[in-house]
Structures are given as structure tokens and as C-alpha cells.
Amino acid sequence: MFRYLIRRILWAVLLFIVITFVTFVIFFMGPNDPARAQCGGDQAQPACLKLVTEHYGLDKPIYVQYWRFFKRLVFQQNLGHSYATGQSINQAIGKAAPVTASLVFGGAILWMIMGLLIGVYSALKPRSLLDRTAMVFVLIGISAHPVWIGLIFEYLFGVKLKWTPIANYANFFGAPKDSGLPGGPWQWFYHMILPWCTFAILFAALYARMIRANVMETLNEDFVRTARAKGAPERRVLFSHVLRNALLPVVTMLGMDIGVALGGAIFTETVYQLPGLGRSLIIGVQSNDFATVQGVVVFATIAILLFNLIVDVLYAWIDPRIRLT
């Protein structure tokens, strides 16, 4: 177990270095000049350009720049300042991350609930009406784009039925004083319902299909027959013998998909105008704000690596066959 953990952590560190370096290189090679961006684009004064270039060390070779960036990151946990606004990127991410986290984790919980309910039920009653209906839902979920779904939802539930707000975020812990914005847990929940549904639908569909297949396969396992031969009622067979085995691969998938989903969050945040990481990223790209983009990428990388690590440990904990290796 210990050896397994160490190996996972070392891999995470290695991956982190590789990913940050690659993003660094990509932006370094890119056609835009961050110094020019910061000095006001085309009307940039040569003096300003010189100052900025020296300040950020933009004339130094790439490895020196990367090393500077890496040192700052590791020893000061500092992602630097935005080229566009001069704001601290740490602060910007500190504001945006909870929004994205709300969306991603809330969405993940939603898609797991939906995936489990639909998947398990379809597996227990294969070819029933519900199974067939569910598979149609799965097909829609897989083929429809989140932006399209988001717009439909907004129009239907927000504009026509007026059940939900159509945009914006409400802080869970209450909005800042005299901002006039809504806040508090209920408002937060109320504002997030549509984004969650939009965000979760693709994964709910994928998971429903995967869980259905896994449960059906596990139902045919010999040990399930053993459990029935012991006289266990169906409910018990399902919960203590089938599900735990069928959900093992789902845990691994979940770990990987949270990362993938982070990418998907960009669309949902754009549609519902949520001030999350995805939005920061898009604004950063549009304004040639290399530092912000990199900050978001680095933060997301750390988050994903950390999450994968947690899932690996969790997996080792729930699957006894892993523990000893």
C-alpha cells in the first residue's frame, strides 16, 4: 500500500513538471508578445516594452524563464500577475475556483445519481420499456452539445416557465455587502440548478451506459450465483455483492472524467455567465494574457492530479486485490 502510494505521488510530481513545461513552451512559441500586450498593444512605447521585458525576463532563454516561473510557483506558491490587468493571479483564481468547483462537483454528484439510477435499473430490467427509453436519453445526452442544451434549458425553464434564473452566480456564503447581488446557500443552489443539469447530462448518459453494462456483467458472475444459493434476498445480492464490484471501474473513470469535465465546464460557464475558471481562461486567451492562462492551466493541472491521486487511493481502499501490490 505504502509503495503503491509513493509510486503514485512520484508519478503525479513528474506529470506536473511535464505538463507545466509543455504549456510554458506552447505559449512561449506562440505568435503574441506579452510585453506588447501589457503596454497597450499597437501603440506601445519602446520604453515601456523595454521595462516590461526586463521586469519579466522575457529576453532570457526559455529554460531560465521556466525555472524562474517554477521557483516562484513551488517556493512562494505564486502564479504571478496578469499581463492584462496587473491583478494577482492567485487572487483571481481564488475567486473563480469556487464557482467552477461548485459546478464540477455538484454536476458530478448529479451525474452519478442519474447514472446510477438509470444504469442499475436498466441492467435489472434489460429490454424493458424504461431501459429502451433510458437508452434514447443516453443517445441524446451523448450527441447533444452542452452549449445547445444550455440554451434550450435557459429558454425553456428560465424564459418560458420562469422557474430558474437564466444566468449569473450566487455566492454560497452570501454576497459581498452592498453589491446588491443575491447570495446564500439557497440562492447558490437556485442559480446552479440549470448549469448543473446542462453540465451533467453528457456524463450522466455515458455513466448510465457504463454502469448498465458493468452491472449486467457482474450479475452473471459466479459469486452472485453463490450469494443467491446462500439464500440472500435480491436486494442484498444487489447491494452487497453486485454493486460494489460493478462500481469499481466506475471509480477510476470518475477520477479521470473530473479532469475531462473541467474542460467541459468552459462551455457551461460561458452559457450561464458564471465567473469561473473557464471564463477566466477564455478572457485570458482573448486578451493575450499569457500569465492568466498559464495560471489557470497550472491550477487545473494540480487539481486534476490531486483528484486522481485521491481516486487511486480510494480504489486501493475499496479493491482488496490492489492493496498488496
Binding site: D222, T226, K230, A232, D319
Partner: peptide
Amino acid sequence: RDVRGNEISMIFQDPMTSLNPV
């Protein structure tokens, strides 16, 4: 169910797969 595993019980061919691995 009251009979199965109580009055009549059963063992199977493949001991490698007949026990719950987790």
C-alpha cells in the same frame, strides 16, 4: 430463500470466481 443455503446448499465448479473478491 429459506431453503437455499439453509436446508439445501450448493458449491460450484470454479472456486476462483465463486467467492466475492471484495
